[in-house]
Computed example of a mutant assay.
Amino acid sequence: MNSELHYEISNFLNHEAFLLDHNHYNEWLDILSVDIKYRMPLRVTTNNKGQSNIVNNMTYFEETKSSLISRVARLYTSSAWAENPATRQRHIISNVMIESTSNSDEYQVRSYILFLRSRGSDHDTEKLFGERLDIIRKENSKWKLIERTIYPDQAVLTISNMSMFL
């Protein structure tokens, strides 16, 4: 990959993190393609080191643009009790690796994520970390997220709810 492309895609991912960290959810929806697939399969602990510990047919969430729009809309209502008081969150993205796909406008992008969240005056900080596998496409001269699969490193998630976006 050339450095200009890496810079563009890394900036896209950093901008996405900024939008999520600052609760700009409607703007975040704008960078998602209409055909987005957004999912997080389960990780399990296995004794067999040669066997995959990802269970792809079981997910914490499997979303479409429509379901993501509904989740975002709910955040702006009084029934979003999981976000009251509002959380403070950080999405730390690193190790961005980009590969070409068979479509010249699409790229497969791997990145690592560290998600941190605190609430109110709580002393506890929740964290989730893992790897993301994205498909990113240029549509009308703008980058769009087409597909995201999040592979958590934890087999047991230590977060209080799944109201966040990764």
Results as ranks from 00 to 15, higher is better:
H123L: 13
T64F: 10
E83Y: 09
N2G: 10
H24N: 11
I92Y: 15
S102A: 09
Y107I: 06
R148Y: 14
L19V: 01
F129D: 14
N140C: 07
N26Q: 09
I69N: 04
S141R: 06
A82R: 07
I159D: 09
T101L: 08
Q51C: 13
L13N: 00
W81R: 09
E131G: 02
N11E: 13
N47P: 04
N161K: 05
E8N: 13
T125Q: 09
D35W: 03
I135H: 05
T59F: 00
A73R: 10
D35Y: 03
S100L: 06
T149G: 03
S78A: 14
I92Q: 14
D153F: 10
I146D: 00
T87Y: 04
H22W: 03
E27A: 05
N14R: 07
L32I: 06
T64G: 07
L157S: 09
T158R: 10
W81A: 08
N95Q: 11
I92V: 14
E126G: 03
S3L: 15
W28L: 00
H6G: 00
I93K: 04
S102T: 09
E83V: 02
L19A: 04
N95C: 04
S160P: 04
S10H: 06
Y76D: 12
Y60T: 08
E147N: 11
F18W: 10
A82S: 11
Y38D: 05
H22C: 05
D122S: 13
L116F: 04
L13K: 02
G120F: 09
H15S: 15
E131H: 05
I36K: 02
G120A: 13
M164T: 01
N103P: 03
F129E: 12
D35G: 04
R74K: 15
R74V: 02
S102Q: 14
H24T: 00
D153I: 01
T77L: 11
